[in-house]
Amino acid sequence: MNKSIVIFFLADLLTVDAGAQAINQTVNNGVISMSITPGVHGGAISSLKFGNVETVDSFDQGRLIQTSIFFDAGQETGVYVPCANATLPQWLNPQEGGDVCGNPSPTWGGDAGAIESGEVNVATTPLDWSAAGVRPAGFQIFGNHKIGPLPYMNSKYVARLLYTYKSTTQSINPLHYLHWNTPNLVPYAPAMVFRASVLNRLYGLSMDGMEWVDVTDSVSTHGDNASYYRFKAMAWATPDTINDTSGWGVAVYGGWTLSQTCAGPVVMELTSQNGQCPNYSASSRILNTASDGHGISALNLLDQTLPVIPVAGSETLMPHIVVGNLDTIRSIVNGLYSQGY
C-alpha cells in the first residue's frame, strides 16, 4: 500500500466536522456509479452500478458493501440492548450499514469530494449488527472512496476504497479468534453482497495472476456458512461469463492480504488450498427477501492484520473494486500488485 497516499487521505478524513450530518452522494465516471445513502444505509456503499446495471443487494443493513469488524463484548461498550429476538453473543460486530432491526448507523461529516474528484466521503459511528441502538463506545469508521481513474491506475474500471478505524475513548481489540477455538476471519474489508440475478458465477485468480478458476460449484449455499479461499483476487460474474472475454463481473482485491497468516487452522473449500490462510470467503443463497426477489451472492475480503487500536489511534485498510470482463479485471489487479497495492 502506498503510504504517502494513505497519510494524505487519513489526515483529511480525521479532521471531518463531527457536528455535520453526512449527505447522499453519488459519483459516476461513465463506467462505474457508486452511491452512499446515509439516512437509509448508514455509511455503507448502497449502490454499485456497472453500465447502469445495479449489482448490490440492499434489502437490509447486513448486506450492501461495507466494512465489518468483530471484537470482544463487555469492555468496549456499556449497556447492550438486544433487539427483536436477538441473542446476546460473546462479541460485538459494528458495521457501517446498521443493525439487524433496520436502524442505520449514525453518520456525521463526510461531504462529497471536489467536483470531478470521483470521491464519496462518510464518517460513521457504527451500530452493532445484533442489537438496536448499541454503539461500541469510541469506535468510528471513516470511508473515503474514489472511482477511477486513480493517480496510480488510469482506468475507469477500478475504484479505491479507504477504510480508517479510529478509537477515541478506549483500546479496540479486533477478535481474530472465536471463543470455541475457531479463527475469526475478520474484519471484512469489505463485505460485498450482490444480486444473484445479476452475478452468480464465482471466479478466483491464481496467486501468480495468470489464470482464472471457476469455483462456482464449490461455494456454500447453506445459510450463513461461508466457503474459504486463497486467491490473488475473486469476482462474482454474470452467467454468460464462460471465458476471459465474455460477460463481466465485480472483483475485490487487497494486496496486503496475500501474505497474511491466520491465528489457527481453517477448513478451506478447495483441497488444493489446505493448510493455507484464506483471504476471501464467499456464499450464495436463494432468498425471497433479496432486493431482486431471487437471491444473494456474497464475497468478503478477509483481513487478519488489523492490530489493537489504542486510544486516539487509528488504522487504515485500502482494498480495490475492479469491474469488467475477467481479462480486464486480471490486467488491472496485476497492475495494482506491480505498484505495491
Rank of each mutant, 00 (worst) to 15 (best):
A159L: 06
V79C: 03
N144L: 01
T26L: 09
F70K: 10
L205F: 12
S227R: 12
N279V: 05
D244R: 05
L270H: 00
A312V: 02
D17T: 02
N121S: 06
R195V: 04
D99C: 05
M318T: 15
D224A: 12
E116H: 10
T168P: 05
G335S: 13
H320F: 12
N144H: 14
R135A: 02
N288Q: 07
H41R: 15
G148E: 02
I286K: 11
L185R: 01
S227Y: 14
T164D: 00
D244P: 13
G51D: 00
V215S: 03
H179V: 06
G255V: 12
N325P: 09
D214S: 06
V215L: 11
G148W: 14
T169A: 08
A233C: 10
P319I: 07
R285W: 03
N200K: 09
P104N: 01
L299I: 10
D60C: 05
T77M: 03
H145Y: 14
S46V: 05
Y163W: 14
R201Q: 13
Q170E: 09
K156Y: 15
L178A: 15
I69W: 07
S297F: 07
K49L: 10
P38H: 04
Q339G: 12
Y228M: 04
I45H: 01
P278V: 13
I65R: 00
A137T: 10
N93T: 11
P106L: 09
S220C: 07
L10F: 06
M153F: 08
W91L: 04
A44H: 13
T125Y: 03
R330F: 09
D303L: 14
Y280G: 10
G264N: 03
S218K: 15
L258E: 13
C277L: 10
W91M: 01
N325D: 13
A159P: 02
D240Q: 03
G223Q: 11
A112W: 06
S35V: 06
A159E: 09
S46K: 00
A20W: 08
V213D: 13
S259H: 07
L199P: 15
Q95G: 08
L92V: 00
E96R: 08
A132M: 03
S155T: 07
D244W: 01
E119I: 11
I7H: 13
N173M: 09
W91P: 02
G97L: 12
S272W: 05
A84F: 08
V122H: 02
G143S: 11
Q25S: 05
G42I: 06
P94W: 02
D60Q: 02
W180D: 14
S35P: 01
N279T: 09
V219C: 02
P319C: 03
K156D: 15
Y177W: 13
Y228P: 05
T169H: 02
T124C: 11
K146I: 01
W236A: 04
V16D: 15
P319A: 05
V79F: 14
V31N: 01
L127N: 04
T107L: 14
V134S: 12
I32P: 05
V250M: 09
V53P: 01
E76M: 09
I65Q: 02
I45Q: 01
E119F: 03
Y229N: 04
R230C: 13
G204V: 14
I115H: 03
M34P: 03
S259V: 11
F142E: 03
